[in-house]
Design a protein around this nucleic acid. Structure first.
Lengths: 339, 339
DNA sequence: CAGCTTATTTCAAACGTTTGCGAAAAGAGT
DNA sequence: ACTCTTTTCGCAAACGTTTGAAATAAGCTG
């Protein structure tokens, strides 16, 4: 039961003038008689006239909407990215439509299609873990809708990207564990089809290498969820009881590992030091508090939004830009061994 | 530099037929020659034709967009609500635009205005804590845009609401603490201008009453943030060292309290048992794991979306509906005293 | 072959707004 | 009185799509 929204035509009919005159009067066009303007503006105010954004969108072929596709908003990191995007977008009169892929390739494709037909002006995307085919992104590229990747980017597509220096972050975290006395660190790694999985692993390996620490065949475990770590860690530790450090690809996995370690009555950090990656809220909640790499989600979101706005507002077709933000190592108790 | 999106007109021009024929051919209208249909549909597929949603919106006077205004998406509870909304909305071809109020009244008003002019079809709102004036909601009501409140509702406005039984949840949590041996429980309460603050406090008081436990002047403390609890709890405990239970209005505050308790070398739960409210992700991360009241954000979101859809699709103006979901007490270690 | 039916297609209006151009009216200058 | 300018306004097209109604062509009946 929507009350009929007041339109320009309504105002025109009431004042016995044409819609075009009303339109111009409302925007203070010099061609319009001051008296007419006054009449129109007063009536518009009285009737609570609001321009119909949809009609404007149709005319201007833009929707002032940015489509944001992330795996899951319940993850702190992604919600901080979204907040960063929202802030910058709002400042320029844009709004954001959020869709979640739930890490599913199919849902990602579906979302892209759906948002495309909603005439999104641009995309900001964090790829799903399971995405191995990139035709949907290529499609976006072909259609010419600007697109910025955040955190997890797609190589096969020409698009702007905002990344963090995963290699360096992982290197710093691993080096920190080594400096704190760890001699046998394992890495709980992310999927190796994603750049972040690869880079963090490489940073880990490089740090070990630079410290002349040998790498066992068990040193790298593909494991990037809380529950998997809960199961995996006791198993690994039973086979390799000299492990004294864990660097996990994300905080949640690190905390799963932390719980697992505590569950078999080993101490964190004294028996096993742990570092995560992301600096999500839970790293602060964990006990002991989790050492981690701050991934600066809010800033990433802001950067991504700025890049997208620039791209949308530009007429020339400049080449793709990649921004790499640096990370900060946040040292907390989970990595500080006593001696 | 947008590539021109393929339109019905383009297809019509190429096949030398009229746009209306194309339109009907695409939707398998019986009036159209099968051969024509085939030509059209094949070409449409080949050119990746996608109907322009904006044009449809204009025609149908709807945007297929639902405006969602929440305080902060980084909070687990709100992001689960959003996920619930998104699921139901998507199933009906709607998308959601998310705006955050950051608990600020002014930002809330701003968001409402902005989304209104984006021709949102409906609102789902969780009020900001600081909202005391309701004119912006009344405005929405007057314009006739359907609106559903979630969790934190506004009494002064006629609108659908989805609430949880805060009173009962608080009662159950408090009763559980009592049953586990607590004799002197304090409540860290939310703002008393919000119904949830009042109801949870009342549930707490009722449980104490029913167990004939006396209530001290310090039994209720307005305190609903992690950091406030961190400061407040040591102070209170130093003045009332027989306190043996804490019921906090939300999980984050409970965990702040838990940390504070541990910091002064008291044991959770043996010295002081703790229960939170919400069952957010961190309650599972906490050590000891936090007993809490499951607030079912996802279901709340789903309910809210269904109610909104029903309201939007209905022609008759039925009275406002309030749905109250029941809560589940999730018992974990933080409340289970040894003896 | 006139009249009727059926199949297929096009026309035109509509949604709400903007905008280039032309039109009408009034005033100014010569 | 004639032209020229200025002021003020309306017409019509455009954005992409849908849809009732009208148009066309072809086939059929008697």
């Amino acid at each position: 039961m929507r009350g009929h929204q007041v339109t320009i035509k309504d105002i025109a009919k009431i004042l016995h003038i044409s819609p075009s005159t009303v339109s111009r009067a409302l925007k203070d066009h010099p061609d319009i008689n001051p008296q007419t303007k006054k009449n129109v503006q007063e009536l518009a105010k009285k009737l609570h006239y609001k321009p119909n954004q949809i009609a404007l969108n149709l005319l201007q072929k833009e929707s002032k909407l940015i489509g944001v596709i992330v795996p899951e908003i319940i993850h702190y990191f992604f919600s901080t990215i979204i907040s960063g995007i929202e802030k910058i977008a709002n400042e320029s009169g844009y709004h954001i439509i959020i869709a979640q892929s739930n890490e599913s390739y199919h849902k990602e494709v579906e979302n892209i299609q759906a948002l495309l037909s909603s005439n999104i002006d641009g995309f900001i995307i964090t790829m799903a873990k399971t995405t191995l085919n990139f035709d949907h992104f290529k499609n976006v590229e072909e259609i010419g809708v600007p697109m910025v990747f955040v955190d997890r980017a797609c190589d096969k597509v020409t698009a702007d990207k905002v990344l963090v220096d995963d290699f360096d972050g992982a290197y710093k975290a691993t080096k920190h564990l080594i400096d704190n006395g760890c001699k046998n660190i394992i890495h709980l790694a992310g999927p190796q089809n994603l750049d972040i999985g690869i880079q963090r692993k490489e940073g880990f390996l490089a740090a070990l290498n630079d410290s002349n620490i040998s790498i066992g065949d068990y040193s790298i475990q593909i494991c990037d969820t809380h529950d998997h770590a809960l199961k995996l860690i006791p198993e690994i530790l039973s086979r390799h009881n000299n492990i004294d450090g864990i660097f996990a690809v994300n905080d949640l996995t690190a905390i799963g590992a932390m719980k697992a370690v505590k569950s078999i009555n080993k101490k964190v950090p004294d028996d096993i030091a742990i570092s995560g990656f992301t600096n999500s809220f839970i790293s602060y909640i964990a006990d002991p508090e989790l050492t981690t790499v701050d991934q600066k989600g809010f800033e990433m979101g802001q950067h991504a939004a700025r890049m997208l706005l620039k791209r949308m507002q530009s007429d020339e077709n400049y080449g793709p830009v990649t921004t790499i933000l640096n990370t900060d190592l946040i040292i907390r108790k989970s990595s500080l061994k006593k001696k």
